[in-house]
Design a protein around this nucleic acid. Structure first.
Length: 291
DNA sequence: GGCCAGGCCTGAT
DNA sequence: ATCAGGCATGGC
């Protein structure tokens, strides 16, 4: 990969295993929107970024070399060798090979742990467009105004302190539905007990998973998503309705409870369970397999 | 109008 | 430990 700096842009040449559509539309993030020109604009770490692909180049617009090195390099997980991950998964079984071939450009973003905690509480029994809307509402009302890009205003995701200003009713007004009280409780928990998300990151996967479930609104699946997308726990295996279909259609798990499917997936794919899950999720959701 | 969505909580067994 | 039933909201 070659990194070139231009006016307000970073160009990544000879980059492999990177496709903005696969990465930003595979359900792991909720704050990226597709522009009319096919590029994606989103917010992370208090910055607005636009991403697009041109042949074999990735163009990061509205940034500079300093932010690329300090923020986006890690955010897009560019230090990781996805070719070897895909090779290992593809050799595991034919279904995984098909899933990896289909979502070849997926990378697991290194997102903010606190943002993942609240975002995936909102995700429970919800749909992705509705989740995005609720998170945008929360960011607009309680986050910081970051600026404008292509005529639209962007806001940061609120800190625990900022979100603690919201009442349950105000959270309901953000279209969080019945999850309003969970968000309120979790935020109070973090503030009142001075919890540091870094402490969860420092735990081993099993402990982290168990501790996250102590928050209201966080069950096994939501805990796995927070650990996988916000805490670098790549052996997590979130089982949602789509992965449930995968396990039933591809892995003979017809009569298994969700909790047993989770353990089964972790046993099958080991330390790469999270990557396997993400390729499979994107594959079956796009193909609508099992629906 | 019924069903479902990146499920979780509560209460009953 | 496991299993119903309920739950906001909106698209199909």
């Amino acid at each position: 990969m070659i990194v070139e700096e231009r006016e307000n842009k970073i160009i990544l040449k000879d980059i492999i295993d990177f496709d903005p559509v696969h990465i930003l539309d595979c359900g792991q993030c909720f704050r990226w929107t597709k522009e009319e020109d096919g590029s994606y604009t989103g917010v992370a770490k208090g910055k607005i970024l636009n991403v697009r692909k041109n042949d074999n180049e990735i163009i990061l617009d509205n940034t500079n070399i300093s932010d690329f090195e300090n923020i986006w390099y890690d955010y897009f997980d560019l230090a990781r060798d996805y070719s070897s991950i895909k090779k290992e998964l593809a050799s595991h079984d034919e279904n995984l090979r098909a899933a990896v071939d289909f979502g070849w450009g997926i990378r697991i973003l290194q997102q903010d742990a606190w943002e993942m905690l609240i975002s995936f509480i909102i995700s429970s029994n919800n749909r992705i467009p509705m989740i995005q809307r609720a998170i945008n509402n929360i960011s607009e009302r309680y986050g910081d105004k970051l600026g404008e890009y292509k005529g639209k205003t962007y806001y940061s995701f609120p800190t625990p302190e900022q979100l603690s200003k919201a009442s349950i009713e105000e959270l309901r007004d953000c279209k969080t539905g019945f999850r309003d009280k969970y968000i309120f409780s979790t935020t109070r928990d973090v503030i009142d007990n001075k919890l540091d998300m870094q402490d969860f990151i420092d735990m081993n996967s099993a402990t982290c998973h168990k501790e996250l479930m102590k928050f209201k609104g966080v069950g096994a699946k939501v805990s796995d998503c927070i650990a996988l997308f916000g805490m670098g726990k790549y052996d997590s295996f979130p089982v949602d309705v789509w992965v449930k279909r995968v396990m039933q259609e591809f892995y003979n798990a017809e009569d298994m409870s969700l909790l047993k499917m989770r353990k089964y997936g972790m046993d099958l794919f080991g330390e790469k369970a999270g990557f396997a899950q993400q390729y499979l999720f994107y594959y079956v959701r796009e193909m609508e397999i099992g629906k």
